[in-house]
């Protein structure tokens, strides 16, 4: 049973999810197993707060399941899930759940850093400092490995805009990390 589902493509799983009552549950479990790391990484790094990320992450999959009959054709399930996650994250930010804990969270992260992951902790802080419009695109590219076309689809922007935003996000992160990167290159 499990083997059967593991070998199916995203599109085939989605078809089972929407057309085969008897196997929809297993199909959904497989979709969750396959895509949860990426979706959670996006939520976690975009919101910068684990508890809030967990809430949004759960809500993403619940909404996906409950709205599965609204989408007839699924060509890119990963992008579709991230689009739901993005909307949930934007809603969470709008509701100011995130901002109240923003500064404290950065301080906690700084305290948790150790030397072996020093660059990674600095990158996390640099991502937090990016404007949301750059941050989300940078995360989709670096954490989720999405192509420019997928990012453009999720964010409803042109591919050129995506290119420019990724470039600028990287420029800013490099600027923030410059003291560390200079030291590293010596």
């Amino acid at each position: 049973m499990d083997r059967e589902f593991e070998n199916l493509s995203d599109t085939e799983l989605f078809i089972l999810l929407t057309t085969d009552e008897s196997r929809a549950g297993k199909a959904f479990e497989e979709i969750y197993t396959r895509h949860s790391p990426r979706v959670f990484a996006y939520c976690q790094r975009f919101l910068g707060n684990r508890e809030e990320a967990e809430d949004v992450f759960q809500e993403t999959f619940i909404r996906f399941y409950n709205s599965r009959f609204k989408t007839r054709k699924m060509s890119n399930l990963a992008a579709f899930l991230l689009k739901i996650a993005r909307n949930q994250c934007v809603n969470a930010i709008r509701e100011h759940k995130h901002e109240a804990r923003y500064n404290d969270e950065i301080m906690i992260r700084h305290d948790e850093s150790d030397e072996t992951d020093e660059l990674l902790n600095l990158i996390k802080m640099a991502i937090e400092l990016l404007p949301d419009e750059y941050k989300e695109i940078f995360i989709m590219r670096e954490y989720n490995g999405l192509k420019y076309t997928d990012i453009a689809y999720i964010t409803n922007q042109s591919i050129n805009t995506v290119k420019v935003k990724i470039f600028r996000a990287r420029e800013r992160i490099r600027q923030i990390l410059q003291p560390y990167l200079s030291e590293m290159s010596k």
């Binding site: 049973m1 085969d20 009552e21 008897s22 196997r23 929809a24 549950g25 297993k26 959904f28 479990e29 969750y32 197993t33 949860s36 790391p37 990426r38 979706v39 959670f40 990484a41 976690q44 790094r45 967990e54 992450f57 759960q58 999959f61 619940i62 399941y65 409950n66 990674l120 996390k124 954490y143």
Partner: peptide, 28 residues
């Protein structure tokens, strides 16, 4: 950044329960 790619284990059960499924369930 393994922390970011690792959702809590309890989340799966929570999601499946929320949509009316049981982990390991066969039916929809």
């Amino acid at each position: 950044d393994t922390e970011a790619f690792t959702p809590p284990r309890t989340t799966k059960r929570a999601v499946l329960t929320a949509v009316g499924l049981t982990p390991g369930a066969v039916a929809n």
